[in-house]
Design a binder for these strands. Structure first.
Lengths: 250, 250
DNA sequence: CGAATCCTTGAACACCTTCAACAGGGGTGG
DNA sequence: CCACCCCTGTTGAAGGTGTTCAAGGATTCG
């Protein structure tokens, strides 16, 4: 990969000025529950604002595990290659969410991560977090909680894939995006999908055509208005009623 | 729940004698990678041999999170209740495997856990593990790795549910059980299923009838011999060839 | 402006489900 | 200890949800 020193430096310079305590994602990301001194320590090992353009890779399957990443802006999809050369999309990640947790055990990324739009991430060196951990157990505890949350999320997805129809799966995704955007201060009812129909289809084990048809049907039913990537949720209550509590993907 | 003091005491007395370092599951459970002094500390906070009979619950959805459990013997299934009153089976757990990790974040169990046969577990009080963690970071690191492994497992299941046929899913389960039994010193080709057809069906999002038919078909094809719960794998290579690397559930 | 990609829609087909009936074991009570 | 019963598992036939194949339209980007 060729470097772009000027652009990189500029963005890092501006990025480095934002300490965790001043980050707008403070409530969503790793630092939740940490006090002032802990935060200052944490700030020392976190490198901010690695910027990715749409389609750029954060890491690829087989890459050695170096960092856990926190999404700062934009959105990133993770995928795992399967036989037949195809990819399985394993997740969509919004600002404040952590990435690469599955690589801790093997020290090798099994998944890849690609920016769905221009995005930036913080790099968290897990080794150094562990050093800190012996001083501030809060960071360690926080890591455990985040991974626990991820496991819970995976179980919700399992229920969705096992027990729910294509219709209910798409409803769950729209609802999840709505909730996550809302928590980040964006509109809960109107947003742009950064992922393609094919990405959604892969994520849920459906055919691209099925997803496309569902968007059309949801529109006919007055549930949503959709034109290409832009979505407006017109009946949030009815969407919510399609998704049971254990299937919530937030 | 009524107590059975005599039986409980007997089993606990015999159980308490086995320190982690002498446990046959040493290579599979939490202690892997820990040195002698660390192990001695760990032993102090782990309570051994809570015994469960078939059908008894280790915890239920909604229970407060107190312990992480390590299976010592037998097998335990986890499930999550879904609307319609039905249950979704979320996992089958063999000796050496950890249980209840999804409750760390909310401090409440979302899942329940039931013994599929007479089983025993060790209780790991996570709070006290965290105390230790500030002394021996190895325990913390080990917890992170185990949770990372779980996340990887969940992704494999996601691929299986999204991209693979009923046939391939069952092959993946049989192969997983084979590998896991083998690692525990049992036969890789002949064992008893502790879970029902319905449990398997629920786990994979299939109908009970489909699972039953698949067992029959596998037998017709000479892949396995099966009578009720007893299974003999007759063509391990061919079974393995049905399951891609990213879908391995081990 | 052209090419490639993404999205949409239609029709036939396939895998798995659902409904139904029955067989067989294991446990329980007599 | 045996008989009964219930639960688990098995097998068949019809039906449905989603897939596959096919073609065309729209959008973006070089």
């Amino acid at each position: 990969m060729s470097q772009l020193p000027h652009a990189t430096n500029v963005s890092e310079l501006s990025g480095l000025k934002v300490a965790c305590k001043d980050c707008s994602l403070f409530q969503l990301c790793l630092p939740v529950g940490l006090g002032g001194p802990d935060l200052a320590l944490l700030d020392r090992v976190i490198k901010r604002r690695h910027v990715l353009k749409r389609g750029e890779y954060l890491f690829r399957p087989g890459d050695p595990f170096v960092f856990v990443y926190a999404v700062r802006s934009g959105s990133i999809k993770t995928y795992t290659p399967i036989r037949d050369g195809a990819d399985q999309v394993t997740g969509f990640h919004l600002p404040g969410e952590l990435l690469g947790l599955d690589a801790i055990n093997t020290e090798t990324h099994q998944c890849g991560a690609v920016a769905l739009e221009t995005s930036s991430v913080c790099e968290l060196p897990l080794n150094r977090l562990e050093e800190l951990g012996s001083v501030i157990t809060n960071v360690q505890r926080q890591m455990l909680r985040i991974m626990s949350k991820q496991i819970l999320h995976d179980q919700a997805l399992q229920v969705l894939l096992c027990k729910r129809s294509a219709e209910e799966r798409l409803a769950a995704l729209l609802l999840s995006l709505s909730n996550r955007y809302k928590r980040r201060g964006f509109s809960a009812t109107e947003f742009d999908l950064s992922m393609s129909r094919q990405d959604i289809a892969s994520y849920f084990g459906l055919a691209e055509e099925t997803v496309s048809r569902l968007f059309s049907r949801f529109q006919e039913q007055g549930l949503i208005e959709v034109t290409r990537k832009h979505v407006r949720l017109r009946d949030l209550p009815r969407l919510a009623s399609m998704v049971g509590a254990p299937e919530r993907l937030d």
